[in-house]
């Protein structure tokens, strides 16, 4: 059975999601912050984490965006193959939702239309949209506005198969060390391992949208996530990069098949304002 969804409904949902994501953090992120604020050893680090808790409270209560960098909107659209869209082109509907959300939601317009000419588009479009086909008659939208303080610190490493898991660990630590205070720690570290060059980067981005309290279903990856989180927190970078025992809230790793000749590793770094909202329509 084909299910019809109006593109107007898509626009409306995307608009609401842009606003929701920038004023309220998801429960998993809030819990991670609360836990860190309790466990942090450094006095200055503890003070900073307390300010971040306070910041979230003010953001929600007074409707001031959590961070002024309300990001470039990244959208994952998983589309059931039994869905038919009515009313207009899906891509236009999504972009319109972003336009309305950023304009009506008092969010910052941080997008330039051309990377070299650099003229601001004034409505934060275009968003970056990743489409994926799915079974069934539903549409799942995930919206993750991405700030560039941390995006700029992200890396991709085309390792050799011989580098193995040690090479992967080194790559992750290198990226986090280099990011340091620039990425507004405590961070969430999204890692992609495998695939091709672009697939690997996408895996890392998708890993960031996975809740921080939801470990990988693959047992050895789950262990790797825990080990890397321990190591990263042992770097001492701390909240705001000013020293402490909380450098990251989570390391989320996604994997995919790869070629006999390669071992791509992508590290997509996100700050403590790791925004993600998902809805099923």
């Amino acid at each position: 059975m084909i299910r019809t969804i109006s593109t107007e409904e898509i626009t409306k949902n995307i608009k609401e999601m842009c606003i929701e994501a920038n004023y309220y953090l998801s429960g998993d992120m809030r819990e991670a912050l609360d836990r860190a604020a309790e466990g942090e050893q450094a006095p200055l680090g503890k003070k900073i984490l307390g300010q971040l808790q306070e910041n979230l409270k003010i953001a929600g209560e007074e409707m001031i965006p959590i961070c002024q960098d309300t990001g470039m909107a990244v959208i994952f659209a998983e589309i059931g193959q039994d869905v038919h869209f009515e009313g207009g082109f899906l891509e236009d509907a999504i972009q319109e939702g972003v336009r309305q959300g950023y304009t009506e939601g008092f969010l910052r317009k941080s997008v330039v239309g051309d990377p070299i000419i650099r003229e601001n588009t004034r409505d934060n479009t275009p968003a970056v949209i990743h489409y994926q086909m799915a079974k069934g008659d539903k549409v799942k939208l995930t919206l993750a506005p991405k700030g560039f303080g941390s995006e700029n610190m992200s890396r991709i490493f085309m390792l050799k198969p011989a580098d193995g898991i040690e090479g992967v660990k080194n790559a992750i630590l290198t990226a986090v060390k280099d990011a340091g205070p620039n990425a507004c720690p405590p961070m969430v570290v999204g890692v992609g391992i495998g695939g091709t060059f672009e697939k690997c980067a996408l895996l890392a981005k998708q890993a960031l949208a996975r809740p921080v309290n939801e470990p990988s279903p693959i047992p050895y990856i789950q262990e790797l996530e825990a080990e890397m989180l321990r190591k990263i927190n042992g770097l001492g970078i701390g909240p705001g990069g000013l020293g402490g025992t909380t450098t990251a809230f989570a390391v989320n790793i996604n994997t995919y098949a790869t070629h006999i000749a390669g071992l791509p590793v992508a590290v997509n770094i996100c700050c403590h304002v790791n925004r993600h909202v998902a809805r099923e329509i």
Binding site: I48, Q51, L52, E54, N55, L56, I58, A59, E62, I64, P65, I66, C67, Q68, D69, R108, K109, S110, N120, R122, G147, G149, P181, C184, G240, C271, H272, V273
Partner: peptide, 25 residues
């Protein structure tokens, strides 16, 4: 503190444009 924009905004009492309004943010 990076990412504490809501909190920091509470310490700002006044904001005036000096120039380059065309640059938006």
């Amino acid at each position: 503190v990076g990412g504490a924009g809501a909190l920091l905004s509470k310490c700002i009492q006044k904001s005036d444009l000096v120039c380059y309004g065309d640059l938006g943010a």
